[in-house]
Write a protein that binds this DNA or RNA. Structure first.
Length: 465
RNA sequence: GUCCCUAUCGUCUAGAGGCCUAGGACAAUACCCUUUCACGGUAUGAACCGGGGUUCGAAUCCCCGUGGGGACGCCA
């Protein structure tokens, strides 16, 4: 049997980090076993689903590189199929019409809660042998409920959490079709998982309570029951649960904040899953290692600092040209272009092991492509008379110096010595003049990359000569 | 309230009864490297929620408690 997994988000918002990890694990499991990964959009909540959210989810998946093999399937386009199954169930007696109004239900639930009972439907419209049902009220559109077994228990061997079992007495007859005829979540999932021949349902922890209902439904339909793996949730950096109001951000936000997708992927893979002591690995290796046995059963707290570390690691390894392109994309938003400046990939190479994200890289590259404007305080502190004298000497020396880091380093050192200064006493003013900053990579490589013309122009402009 | 899940350093985790005086990573601290700032290197501190069992032996198995989380929708 070939493995078939699915990621089934509802398009009511962006793809957040928890959803991304669920997608990653489903994707990896399918890849690991040479199976198929299916994308299904669960948009039956017409009031809250939006096309923008669908696009946001697609964008997020694409940015991460989680490609699906089938789909995206949209549940709203499968209405006829759901309605046909509901009709079958009504005919076979595994589902029935319920004429209870929302108000009556609310009253029932309130009374149950007042008695400290678990709120649930009381089965008043459920047909039983020898039970007299009231006549259907006039003008009330009924919902359709699933006739859940009353006795025994329903359970499964969860691939993450082990054996889980629920007493059927805990489950009530849930609604499978609303009064307007549209099917509900638990029902659509079951029909789709069956029709799409899903073998492994990998989803969030919050669905554990839906699973027994779905299994009962599957069995009523005579369908095979897939394997289930429930992933525990991801908590925010502060240990609080993630929600729209608190801490949950779109994966695309990570792009904006300068993270590389491979860093986010690697971080997510390690959050709740492990392979011994391995921390840094690419997706190819992840897929070859991935299994459900090493997923943690308890919730995990998101740690931005570790993500930052991984991001810095991947930036150090990244191709300078790619980094330059990413920085260029960002600088472009600030109306800064690479035209007329030093080779972007050389500048990126100078900074790639000094920055933790792409925004920092863009900031670092900025002064290479537009004249820096050091603040008055910085100038006053570093451009002292002695410094200016030494810089003037250096300017002379640089006009005929071979333009190679080693020679340039020598030139700076010798100038400092000739002026009676320590190396930093010349190098730092030089940095301020060239880049507008007191720190930079080694001064010889900065000179080399910036180029003779620009260096001399910036020196002369600073010295007012 | 009821049901379900869960519990190792601050954080992510290794650990499938003896390999554990509990390992790795991030973070922290110290030192080294160094023309600055970073990077990098080395070292240090830091944990098995509590109580009962089972066993020659328990971080690992069982029970109870406690903490945390989820669910109880004509949302998904």
């Amino acid at each position: 049997m070939t493995v078939r997994t699915r990621f089934a988000p509802s398009p009511t918002g962006f793809l957040h980090i928890g959803g991304a990890r669920t997608a990653l694990f489903s994707w990896a499991y399918a890849r690991r076993h040479g199976g198929s990964f299916i994308l299904r959009i669960e948009d039956t909540d017409v009031a809250r689903s939006t096309p923008e959210a669908v696009q946001a989810i697609l964008d997020g998946m694409q940015w991460l590189g989680l490609e699906h093999d089938e789909g995206p399937f949209y549940q709203m386009q499968r209405m006829d199929r759901y309605k046909a199954v509901i009709a079958e169930m009504l005919a076979s007696g595994s589902a029935y019409y319920c004429y209870m109004s929302k108000e009556e239900l609310d009253t029932l639930r309130a009374a149950q809660e007042a008695r400290k009972e678990k709120p649930r439907y009381d089965g008043r419209w459920r047909p039983e042998d020898g039970k007299a049902l009231p006549p259907p009220p006039e003008g009330v559109a009924p919902v359709v409920r699933f006739r859940n077994p009353v006795a025994g228990a329903v359970g499964w061997q969860d691939l993450v959490k082990g054996r889980i079992e629920f007493a059927n007495a805990e489950l009530d007859d849930f609604i499978i079709a609303r009064a307007d005829g549209t099917p509900t979540y638990n029902f659509c999932v079951v029909v789709d998982d069956r029709d799409m021949q899903i073998t492994h349902v990998i989803r969030g922890d919050d669905h554990v309570n839906n699973t027994p209902r779905q299994i009962n439904l599957l069995q009523a339909l005579g369908a095979p029951v897939p394997q289930y793996a429930h992933l525990s949730m991801i908590l925010g950096d502060d240990g609080q649960k993630l929600s729209k109001r608190h801490g949950a951000v779109s994966v695309m936000q990570y792009d904006e904040e300068g993270y590389l997708p491979e860093a986010v992927l690697n971080y997510l893979a390690r959050l709740g899953w492990s392979h011994g002591d391995d921390e840094v690995f690419d997706m190819e290796r992840f897929v070859s290692w991935f299994d459900l046995d090493h997923i943690t059963a308890s919730a995990a707290q998101f740690n931005t600092e570790k993500l930052n570390w991984l991001n810095a690691h991947y930036i150090k390894q990244a191709d300078p040209q790619r980094l330059a392109n990413e920085a260029g994309r960002r600088l472009g938003r600030q109306q800064v272009g690479f035209e007329g400046g030093p080779a972007p990939s050389r500048v990126a190479a100078l900074y790639r092991d000094r920055v933790a994200n792409l925004n920092e890289l863009a900031d670092a590259m900025h002064p290479y492509y537009s004249l820096p404007k050091p603040g008055a305080e910085l100038l006053a502190q570093h451009l002292t008379e002695t410094a200016r004298t030494a810089l003037a000497m250096l300017r002379e020396r640089l006009s005929d110096c071979p333009w190679q880091a080693a020679d340039l380093g020598q030139a700076v050192k010798q100038t400092a010595a000739a002026a009676g200064l320590k190396m930093p006493q010349l190098a730092i003013p030089l940095r301020v003049v060239l880049l507008g900053l007191p720190q930079s990579p080694s001064i010889d490589s900065v000179l080399e990359v910036l180029g003779r013309e620009r260096v001399i122009a910036r020196l002369e402009s600073a010295l007012g000569s």
